[in-house]
Nucleic acid binder design. Structure first.
Length: 310
RNA sequence: GGACGGGUGGGUGAGUGGCUAAAACCAGCAGACUGUAAAUCUGCCGCUCCUUGCGGGCUACGGAGGUUCGAAUCCUCCCCCGUCCA
């Protein structure tokens, strides 16, 4: 492999597979720093439920791209890509090895492959479209998209209002059909030799670990965290309150849901999330899949070998 | 011992003679996804066969019989569960 390229290790896999732990181990032995690729960990104050590695557990390894914005702010894949590119360059310049822990497929793709030059989201336009969808039904918006951008409409399910709105937005703000914009420039990350390591524990074991992890989060004060967020006035519409668990626990605090029911529902949502992550990552090219958890010694050994090989 | 109510596919549960392999929901599986992505959305979901078709066969609504051209649905007996009375 090209000696002039800087190395970049990417650890990807479903939630609870042990990405963070593996990243720290690799960082310790290879002289690296961790860069999170996780859409939820960029939010400050939402710590336990998002599975952040807290400073005390980082064993001196710097962690980047965590706690970037306040709960009421909107964060986007494009912004992530820009900041991650910067962080990776900075780490490399210091002579350290950047190690990405990727749970959010879209963010990883935005970073590695880049995004097309499409307009960023416009809250005003979205508000208009959303109320229209509410008044006339989700299919109405799709019909509108079919009129202004038939190609894009064909690729989006009529009821997928979120994606329909995005397509309409691109078409209206960008002045060109979505397909045309997507065909144009897409600048990905360049200049790095990638080592992609995928964690793929057996499904049953993964689910068991997810269940246990949710219990563990509760035991370590997740409810207090949520109570505190509410007391601090974080509005219920704030984006991070959509993350798995936060809505359920708020309901529990409002006495509308028993703790057991909340826990079960969180475990279930997390299992489904893990499945969606696996579906996404399966298509990721060039991944070296390891059949176990990131804290398993044999997996660590394998991962070290893969991280070295370039 | 008596009186009711009930036993349906992995779960909850609708169906009360043919349009029913059996609604709906959940779980599960598979998939899509270029700025909300821990989001949003789609498909499959008894077994099996093939020429993959609104295709064929088999099995299925507690058990065993019966009525009927036809039964998850009606009748008989039995088993189990719940509530109430003794």
């Amino acid at each position: 492999m090209d000696e002039s390229l800087a190395r970049l290790v990417v650890i990807l896999g479903p939630t609870a597979a042990g990405k963070s732990e593996l990243a720290i181990r690799l960082a310790e032995t290879l002289g690296g720093e961790v860069v999170a690729c996780d859409s939820t960990q960029v939010y400050r104050h939402f710590d336990i439920g998002t599975g952040k590695v807290l400073p005390a557990q980082r064993r001196g390894i710097p962690h980047h791209l965590i706690d970037l914005v306040e709960p009421h702010e909107v964060f986007t894949a494009g912004e992530y890509a820009a900041r991650a590119t910067q962080a990776i360059a900075d780490i490399t310049r210091l002579g350290k090895l950047p190690i990405l822990t990727a749970g959010t497929g879209l963010y990883l793709r935005a970073l590695l492959e880049g995004l097309s030059d499409a307009p960023t989201r416009s809250e005003e336009l979205r508000e208009r479209l959303r109320s229209k969808a509410l008044a006339k039904g989700p299919l109405h918006l799709h019909a509108l998209l079919t009129r202004i951008d038939p190609q894009a409409a064909k690729r989006i399910a009529p009821r997928d209002t979120q994606k329909v709105i995005r397509a309409v937005e691109i078409r209206m703000l960008g002045g060109k059909p979505v397909s045309e914009i997507h065909r144009s420039g897409r600048k990905g990350l360049e200049g790095y030799a990638l080592a992609k390591i995928g964690l793929l524990p057996p499904r049953e074991a993964l689910y068991a670990r997810i269940n246990a992890r949710v219990q563990g989060m509760i035991a370590s004060g997740w409810l207090d965290e949520v109570r505190h967020l509410i007391d601090e006035g974080v509005p219920r519409e704030a984006k991070p309150f959509q993350f798995i668990g936060y809505a359920e626990l708020r309901e529990n605090l409002e006495r509308r849901l028993s703790l057991n029911a909340a826990i079960e529902s969180i475990q279930q949502a997390t299992r489904r999330y893990a499945k969606r992550q696996l579906t996404w990552f399966r298509r990721e090219p060039g991944v070296n899949w390891l059949p176990g958890f990131g804290d398993d010694p044999t997996i660590v050994t394998e991962a070290l070998r893969l991280a070295h090989r370039d």
